[in-house]
Amino acid sequence: MSIPIEHPYDFDPTYGLGLAELRAIRPPQAPPHFDNFWRERYVGALGVNPQPQLGESRLSHPDWHVHDIAYTSTDGFRIGGWLLLPREGTVRRGLVVGHGYGGRDQPDFDIPVKETAVLFPCFRGLSRSSRPPISSDPAWHVLNDIDKPESYILGGCVEDLWVAISVLIKLYPQLDGRIGYSGISFGGGIGALALPFDQRIDRGHLIVPTFGNMPVWLSLPTTGSAHSVQNYRKTHGDVLNTLGLFDAATAATRIQVPMLLAVARFDPVVAPPCQFSVANALPTSNDHETVILDAGHFDYPGCEEQHALLTEKVRRFFRAT
């Protein structure tokens, strides 16, 4: 296995950093009111009656009963998605799965879990949760209310995740304390922000998470959502005052449940130093594992083998015991 050498980008998606240098990166210090900011939002999300509605989906699968689902999140925002229920066995665990910034058009049927109710919400403004005037284009979505910390779109997406946990518990009360979270890229960053403050989530899996180490996120060339915020910063120099509250690496220092991280050494969309900042921030006293991929958001030789090994780890990590 080795990181890609040939690529079409006009910058180096390794940023010239070796593995030792990536492992040495640490998260920025939290703003003084970081914890209170998120605790207050969490209390507000807990007070929401999600009013979940289930319907039969046009999708079908031999292993899963597929349901369309919608629920009400904070600010009265209606969230759409899918709920998968196993055709065999009983529901013994719950799992919420977050998507990347491209959204999603269907659930992941190959998710390696059994006896699990799996909820795939679409975060506000994206895919089944799109609503004008919020743009579903990542370059604009990431800027929505960025000048207003209390209403910045990323905070609403974190609340959508917390309310998704409430939905599973409302539908299956026996799952309280037996619900995990898995998120990739955008969903990985949202998960890192949500996990420290919701004791109902018992473990988390983040794949190439974004929004880690915002000062670095704003400084490195990229094709991802950071590029849009970097352009915005040219005329709004104080944007880091908002982004400091939404730093996934800062939040990760507060995660107290077992974690399975997958981070990449080469990634043109989410800079590896930002991903490693999240992984490195996890408290060393807890049961965490970090899997290092050669690349993220990019096809490469050995990709299938690495992801097959990761899938097996995920299977064991979320085993319904």
Rank of each mutant, 00 (worst) to 15 (best):
P4G: 09
P8E: 03
Y9I: 13
T14N: 03
G18C: 14
L19S: 10
Q29M: 13
F37I: 12
W38P: 11
G44H: 09
L46C: 14
G47A: 15
P52G: 02
E56I: 14
P62S: 10
H67A: 09
I69F: 07
I69L: 15
T72H: 08
T74C: 15
D75W: 08
L84V: 09
G94D: 05
K114A: 15
E115W: 01
V118N: 02
F120E: 01
F120G: 04
C122R: 00
R124F: 04
R128I: 00
I134N: 13
S136P: 11
S136A: 15
V142P: 00
E150D: 15
S151V: 11
Y152E: 01
Y152F: 14
L154F: 12
L154G: 00
G156C: 01
W162C: 05
A164G: 08
L168I: 06
K170F: 04
Y172R: 03
Q174W: 11
G183P: 05
G183M: 00
G183D: 02
I184Q: 07
A192M: 09
I201D: 02
I201C: 07
R203P: 00
M214V: 13
V216P: 01
W217P: 03
H227R: 15
Q230W: 03
R233K: 14
T235N: 09
D238G: 03
N241R: 13
A251F: 04
T253A: 09
L260W: 12
P268K: 10
V269K: 01
A271L: 08
C274D: 13
C274L: 12
Q275P: 09
H288Y: 06
V291Q: 07
I292K: 07
H297M: 01
D299G: 11
Y300R: 10
Y300K: 09
K313W: 08
R319L: 14
A320M: 07
